[in-house]
Every structure is written in structure tokens, then in C-alpha cells.
Design a protein around this nucleic acid. Structure first.
Lengths: 224, 224
DNA sequence: GGCCGCATGACAGTTGTGTGACAAATCCGC
DNA sequence: GCGGATTTGTCACACAACTGTCATGCGGCC
């Protein structure tokens, strides 16, 4: 069974697409905005994703880019705008096809089939973030220091990724607790402990950290 | 350098496309009818083929089918007819995309790029992947370790292929359940068991896997 | 000097993973 | 169809790794 995720803010259009897709034999799920769509796709990846370009909050282009980071899923843009600039930008962002509303469901279905036939993307090397002698690859779930892979635990990895995502910026313990652990409240010392453990692994001299630095009274930040 | 073959009987349009493509940095060749196009592609395969639907003699649909028989080359239809039936028929025949004339060259170029990015044709025709002393032949359904063929079951093979397709990247148990078993939900331990069995067969020291490694809390990945 | 924030080591409870056993399902030659 | 062999999925258990809490001590800062 082929699953399709439809990210579209207009309720009427979304429902119409979902119904039409199910009519065509797909399992279809909807999301009303980019954030919800991304979460869904992470939790339970569909085989195809349909994205509208004009979304509240995170826009379609950014949504495509983030989808592409995690996944090779075929992405089809379904937009009201028939404009070469938009089409090119969407394809460059990582979309595989672009359809202008209103779409004929038979065409959509045929295009989805053509995309699946072509299969998943060629094995692309995992994306890597570099901080001096420190390399982080979210895809590969890997951290390297001076070329050597170091084993970090899941929590440490999440913490590191969160810091890397906001490289150079201070993140308070509260923010980290929230984003890494999902705690709205809790003991901030917990962050210290894990930062300490992380330093043991990724810093040359853990007592004198160069990448994962403390900003007294503010929090931590990751830098080159 | 990327080569494109344009099969189009209207001289003016063909020349315009060839010029525009060269402007975009492609090497472009033309053919005025299907027979000539097929011959050219056999003799000196291009990386992409553009086909008009209305051709003298052999028509575009048949041309696509014959191209597809020999080759996985990405095929884009460029036609004056904006009709769902034609679009669906062309895609079913084996085309990868369908553009309605007049085409914006920037859009065409972006679509060609998107296709190549995805194309299995361009990169993995042999479909034998090598991971150090481990070889996986997707076509032949064979797995070899250190030159010796090892017998793996169908499930194990699919699991291995899925991991190989995303070589070097972590796949969560959820993703594997979804992609290998098609389960939307289910016991993740199932994945563990099959990974364990696979290791017995493909790893030199199954207790100390070098290729099929666990990333605690994240999932599994296949590496060199 | 005293206070506060941070680093660190130890520890117990929890979680995640590997593995062997087993029964159901499937395959296959006859 | 039939019976044996293979494959598949479930379960339980053991073990190792990880997590969060706490206590202690150090060092900067007012």
C-alpha cells in the first residue's frame, strides 16, 4: 500500500486531494501546515509527499528543504502559482515535480507512479557539519573528532545536534531542556552533566573546551 | 558534461531547444523523427531525452516505449497538447515528465536536473554495491562475503537492500518496519531479530559487527 | 571572603539491544 | 494435497549501556 502525505493549509483542497487519492488506491494523510507535515513524515514516513507552496508559518520551500534533509521521499509540489521562478525554486529546493492547481487526479496519480518507478535517489553522501576538527553527521548518526569516530549516546547526540543547529549562538539550559528532552520544567543541572560527558568525548582538553563553551549565567554554545 | 537528445520534427522548435539547452550548458543533439532518435540513442546514449508526441512515422508514445526497452534514461515529453489523457498515457509509456509547449528553458533545465538527481539510470545500472568484503547484487538477488555467496532469506535480503540504499545513514526501526515489512505499526524488536540473523551471515564476527552497526537509540546503518 | 554557578565522579534505576527457543506460516518437491 | 524443510514473527531473559540524581569541590564574581 502506498502512503501519501498531503501538506496543504486549505481544508477544502486538502480533503478533496485526500479523498481523490484514496479513490485511486492510496493511503492518504493530511497536514495543515509545514511543521505538522514534517513531524508526521519523521514519525511515520509516507512514500510520497505533496506540498503546497503557500503555507502559514514555515513556507513550502523551507518545508521541502527540511523534508529532503531527513529523507529521499519523492516530493511533488501542488501550487496555485504557475510561475517559472517558483517552479525552478521548488525543484532546486529538492522537489521532484510541480503541478499547477487545479490538478487532474489521474495526472497526479500517473506522475506519482512515474516517480516511484524511478526509485529512490542515488545514495547521496550524508550531510556533515564541520566545526574545526569536529564533524557532525546527523544522517549518519556520527560524530568525528580529528577524523576518528567517537561514540556518543543518543542524548548526547541530540544535544550536540541542537547546539550545532544554532552554531555560535548561546542556548540557555531551559531551551536545551525543552528542545532536547522535551521537558517544560526540570533540573537544569541535568544539562551540565550531559555537556560534561559530551566534552569528555569531543574536546581535546575537556577541562578547557574550545568548541562546546560555557557562557556563565547564560548557557552553552557550540563554535568553531 | 550532460548530453541531451531532442526528438522533435518541427525544425524551428528543435533548433530553438537545442540552442537554449546549449546556452544552459548542455551538449544537445537533435533528431527529426523517432527512428533517427532511437538510432542515435543506441549508438551514442545521451543522459536525457526530450520527445515530442506528434512525430511523423513512429509516434511519440511508441518512441518512448522503445527507448525504455533499452535504457533507463530520463525521458521528458515536450508536447503542444495539454490533455490529461496524453499526459497519463505518456507517463504510463515510460516518460518521467511532461511539459506543455511553449516551455520555459529555465524550468526545463530545472526539471532535467531534478530528474538526474533522482535517476537510478544514470548512476546504478549495475546494481552491485560493495561494502568492503561485502557485495550485494540487487538484480541477481545475491549476497557475497569475501567472494563466497551466502544464502540470505527474502526478508533479510530486503532489509539489507534497504540499508544499502541508504548506505552510511541511520535508519530507525520504524522506518525499516515501514519500508521492509510495510507495517505502519508493530513490534520494533522484529527488526532486531532479523538484523541479528543477517549479522550471522554477513559479518565475520557477528558479535562485533563492522558493516551492519547499531546506533543505540537511533537504529541501524550499513557502512563500509 | 562569601556567594553563586559550574564541573565532575559515583551510583542506582531504567532502558535498549542481542540472543536462543518456539510455534505459526510458508515454501517446495513429490 | 501432503509432509518435511525453511522461514518468519513472538517472547522472555540476560546483559550492557545509558540516564538522571546527588554530593562534593573548584573557581570566578561581586
Amino acid at each position: 500500500m502506498t502512503a501519501v502525505l498531503v501538506i496543504e493549509d486549505d481544508d477544502r483542497i486538502r480533503l478533496a486531494l485526500l479523498l481523490a487519492l484514496e479513490e485511486e488506491g492510496y493511503t492518504a494523510h493530511g497536514a495543515a501546515n509545514a511543521e505538522e507535515g514534517l513531524r508526521r513524515q519523521r514519525q511515520d514516513p509516507a512514500d510520497n509527499v505533496l506540498v503546497d507552496l503557500m503555507l502559514p508559518g514555515l513556507d513550502g520551500f523551507e518545508c521541502i528543504r527540511q523534508l529532503r534533509r531527513d529523507d529521499d521521499v519523492p516530493i511533488v509540489v501542488v501550487s496555485a502559482r504557475d510561475d517559472t521562478h517558483d517552479i525552478v525554486a521548488a525543484l532546486e529546493a529538492g522537489a521532484d515535480d510541480y503541478l499547477v492547481k487545479p490538478v487532474a487526479i489521474k495526472e497526479l496519480s500517473a506522475r506519482l507512479r512515474a516517480l516511484r518507478r524511478r526509485g529512490r535517489a542515488v545514495v547521496t553522501p550524508a550531510a556533515v557539519q564541520v566545526f574545526g576538527d569536529l564533524e557532525i553527521s546527523a544522517d549518519a548518526g556520527e560524530v568525528r573528532r580529528a577524523g576518528r569516530t567517537v561514540a556518543v549516546t543518543r542524548t548526547e547526540f541530540r544535544l550536540l545536534c541542537e547546539l550545532a543547529q544554532h552554531a555560535g549562538k548561546v542556548l540557555s539550559r531551559q531551551q536545551l531542556l525543552q528542545r532536547v528532552w522535551g521537558y517544560d520544567t526540570g533540573d537544569e543541572r541535568l544539562v551540565d552533566v550531559h555537556v560534561g560527558r559530551l566534552r569528555q568525548k569531543i574536546e581535546e582538553d575537556p577541562g578547557n573546551p574550545r568548541h562546546l563553551v560555557t557562557l556563565r549565567g547564560l548557557g552553552y554554545k557550540l563554535q568553531r
